[in-house]
Nucleic acid binder design. Sequence first.
DNA 1: GGGCCTCAAGTTTTT
DNA 2: CTTGAGGCCC
Length: 793
Amino acid sequence: MILDGLNPMQQEVVRTTDGPVLVLAGAGSGKTRALTHRIAYLIEEKGVKPWNILAITFTNKAAGEMKERVQALLPYGGDQVWVATFHATCVRILRRYADRIGYESGFTIYDTDDAKTLMRQVMKRLELDPKMYRERTLLSVISDAKNKMITPDDMAQDAAGKYREMRIAEAYAEYQAQLKKNNAMDFDDLLCNAVELFEREPDVLREYQERFRYIMVDEYQDTNGVQFRFVELLSRAHRNICVVGDDDQSIYKFRGADIRNILDFEETFPGAHVVRLEQNYRSTKTILDAANQVISNNEDRKDKSLWTENPEGDRIELLTFDTAYDEADGIVRIMEQARLRGMRLGDCAVLYRTNAQSRAIEEKCVTRGLPYRLVGGVNFYQRKEIKDILSYLRTVENGQDDVSAMRVLNVPKRGIGATTQARVAMFAQDNDISFFDALLDAEAIPGLGKAAGKLSAFTDLILSLRRQAQTLSVAELIDRVVEEAGYEREIAESSDETEAQAREENIEELKAKAEEYALQAGEEATLRGFLEDVALVADVDSLDESEDRLTLMTLHSAKGLEFDKVIMAGMEDGLFPGYMAINDVEHPEELEEERRLAYVGITRAKKELTFTCARQRMVNGETRYANESRFLDEISPTVLKRTDKTDLYRPRTEKRDLYRSEECGRSRWDDYADYGRRGSFGGGPERDRERDRDRRDSFQDGRSGPGFGRSVSSLKSSGLFDKHPKTGYGMKKPEQKPVELHCGDRVSHAKFGIGTVREIEDGPRDTEVTVEFDTAGVRKMYASFAKLKKVEE
DNA sequence: GGGCCTCAAGTTTTT
DNA sequence: CTTGAGGCCC
C-alpha cells in the first residue's frame, strides 16, 4: 500500500490530489518521499496516466533521484512521468515549437561565458564605454529584467529621459537581437521564451495544459517570476498544482528567486490546501535545536518549528583558529579522526560560503593525503579545451552561432589574426549573414589578402565534420575534432607537460561523457541532444555518493543533500554573513537570506556538526581580521561548545581577550597526532611559553617541508598535484614511471585495449608511440598520456 | 600575426 | 594574491 510508512502529514500530501496544494516541508522532513508517493498514488489509486503528470525539480540530480524512486514504487509506467528541471522542460517544449517564436529548432544554449562574449560584442557595436558599463552589470540587469518578464521595449519605456538607463535598455534590445541572429538562447531565455510561446500561441498552451493535468514543483521557494508564470499558465486549466518548499531554505534571491512565490501562494491560489511537514527524520535533537534557534531570528517567514524523535546526539563544537591555513589543517585532522572512528569519508562534508575558501582546504587534503572531491568552482564544461571542442560541435550543429564559430576560428592556431576576424565579422554584419557564412564567401570579402586562403582550412573542417556528424557517434565526432583540428598536435607541443596531460584527460573525460550520453539516450542520441545535456548540467549533478571521499562544497551546492558529519568552515562576520549583507542597512532581508543559508548548512548534518572560524584570513592579498559569525551567537551554549584552537598553531597574542574561550580543558579534538606528544593541553603559563617557542620552530619546519605552503598552481606544476578528472583539481597520485617500449611489444591501453607497438619516435617534448590495436585500429599517441602497459603473451 | 608584459579588477552564491 | 584582458613590441 502506497500510504504505508508515511506519517499522517505525509499521507495528507499524498491523498490531497486535486486543487492547489502548498506543502511547507521543513529540512529533512521527507518531502521527496511524500512527492514520489504522491505520484505513485495518482497513478495507482486515481488512475491518472503517467504522462499526464509533470514534476519539476531544481537540479538534474534531484530529477534523476525522483524518477528512480517513482519507478521503484510502481510496477510499470513510472518512466512515462515527466520529471525534469525547469530549464530542461522548457527546452523540450521550445525545440518543438521554436518556429513559432522566430527560432530554429536547433538553437544553441549559451552559458554565462557565451553571454559575456556576446555582450562584449554588443557593447562594441553600441560603443558603450566598458568603464561606465560593465558587461557583468549589464548582464545582471538584463537577467533581472527577464526574470520579471520585462521586455527590452518595456525597459526602454521606463527609461525614457534617463540617459544611462536608456543605453542599458538599448544594450538589452541589441543583446536579444544578437541572440536571435545566432539562433541562441541564454539560460533565462529558455524560461522567458517558453512563457512567451504559451502567451502568444494559445493552442500550444492548451496542448500542454491538457497534457500536464497534475503538476508538482519541488523547491518552490527558489522559483523566480518567470518560473512562477510558467507553472501558473500550465496549471490554469486543471488547477492541480502541488508545490513543495521551505521558505526557510530560500537562498537564491540573487538569481531572481522570489520568496513571495511561496509566502503568497495561498493568496495567488485561493482555496489552496496547506500541509506542514514538521517532523525531521534527519538530524539529532541538538543539531535541530541549533537550526531552529538560528532561523527564529528571521522576521519574514512562515512560522513553524521542526521537531524530531531522533536522539539528542553530540554537542556542536565551534573551533577557533588563528589563520585560514590553521583552520584548514584542523578541518582535515578532524576528518582524519572521524575516519579513524570508523566514519565513511563519503558521509562527511565541509561546507563554506565562497568557493575561494576551498583552496586552503584542498591543499591540506593533498598534503595529508586525504581523499576528497570538490564540487563547484570552475565547471568542467567551462574549461578552455572543453569549451573549444564544444564550440566546434556547436558550429557543426548550428552554423548561425557566431560566438562559437569566432571562438574557434583560430583555435588551434591557424595563423588567422584579429584583423582578419574583424573584417569577416564586419562583412557578415553588413550583409546580414552569419559569421560562418561569411567565411564560406571569403573571396567576396575585401582586404583579406592571403589570409583568405587560411580561412578555408577552417570552413573545410567544419563542413567535413558536418558530413561526418550524420554517421558518427558524438564521441567519435569529438575524436575527429581533436585530430583534424590539430588539437592533438597543439597539446603535444605544449610547453607545460602537466597542463597538457590535464587537458588530454579532460578531453578523455568529455568523450566519456559523450559515451555515457549515447548509452542513456540510446536510439535518440543526437549531437543536439548531447550539447543540450551538457549545457544544462550543474556540478552537483555528477556527485557520486558511492565514492568514499570527503566532499567540499559551498553552502548553496549543499542544498538538498545530507551528511553524517558536517563542518561549516569560515564562520566569521564579513565572510558569513558576507560584508554585503552586513553593510546593506537598507536591505535587512539580505541578512535574512544569509541566515537561511546558515540554516540550510546546519540542517545538512545528520549526526555531527562542527563550526570552524579563523581570526585572520587573506582576502585579495591582504589580511583581514574578523569576529566570529553573528549566527553563532544565536545558538545557545547548551548545544554549542566553544574551543579556541589558536594555541595549537601559534604563540599567544594580546588579542586573545577579544575571543571567547569557554573551555580551556582538553577536548576531543586536542588529540592531534603531531602535537599529542608534547603533553596535554592546558598547562600553566610558563609551560605555555615554553611550548610556544617549541611550536614556532616546528611550525616553520613544517612549512618548509615538501610542497607545503606553496600555492596550488606551483603544486600543480611540481607534479605533486594531479588533476582530478571530474573536478580538474588536485588529487594525490603516485608518480608513474614511463614504461620502456620497443617495436613489436604487446601493450594494453585503458580505452583501446590490446595492441602491438609499430613505431616509436622521439618528439621534441615526448615520445610518440604508434600502436596497432587489435580492435581499435592504428593510433598515434604520446607515451606519457597513453599510460601504456606492457602485456606478456 | 604572435608572444610577452603590464595593468586592472575581483570574490558571494548557479540553472 | 590571482587571473584576465589589452597593449606593445618583435
